[in-house]
Amino acid sequence: MRKGKVLTVFAVLVFAFLVAPLVIIAVTAFGGGNAIQFPIESFSLKWFAKVFTTKSFLESFRTSIIVALLATVLALAVGIPAAYALARSHIRGKGLLKSIFLSPTIVPGIVIGFVLYQFIVLSLDIPVFTGLLIGHFMVTLPYVIRVVGSSLDQFDFAIEEAAWSLGCPKGRAFFLTVLPNITSGISAAFMLAFINSFNNIPVSMFLTGPGVSTFPATLMNYIEYNYDPAVSAVSVLLMAATVIIMVVVDKTLGIASLAK
């Protein structure tokens, strides 16, 4: 072990800085008072009950799940073939193509939301929900290209060529040799894309309208007008869900797959 005492203390303090605020919100969620208290003076679960009876929370949660799922599936559907073509073909300008596919990461989320709102919703009169979905597709696509791309880079294409030379049709060979070997990459891409779409705010800010709001946007709105532990309760629920997701990912793909 090459760690000094000073470094250990430093690292412990940094991790305390990361964890303490989350612990504080978790504690305030169980407060019995009407305002946020820390430490809490009485214990109550009433804020959890409030979360589950607040219509805007439930509706926007549903919207966010649907948007994140659809956007991720769409990104996988167009992203996997594109990543495969980049890894496998000899077309020119592959570097340029890859940067084009990753370009949504360069455009700030709030700008994506702004131009989509102006162009799609106002000029083309396309419903807000479609705009929201397209915006979230832009959030998810780079994860698919990057993560699936890197797992394709590690695949030994001699296996696919062996299938071809044994007479297997190209499409079938892809499904029988390549796909099974990149499933963990696809799963990791799915998780990352879904989580980042679900949590995204800037893209959604412009693309919410009457009846259409994402969960984090609703949460943000709620904080600006109410200062009560309901948001803490929501946070506890989200953290619990995150822990479950992380344990599942750790058991199947390894926790490092989320660090991309």
Partner: peptide, 16 residues
């Protein structure tokens, strides 16, 4: 522990 906050949304983390 470091990845965990990255998986939660920024509203919650700012709210803290």
């Amino acid at each position: 522990v470091a990845i965990f906050p990255m998986m939660t949304n920024s509203v919650m983390r700012s709210f803290a």
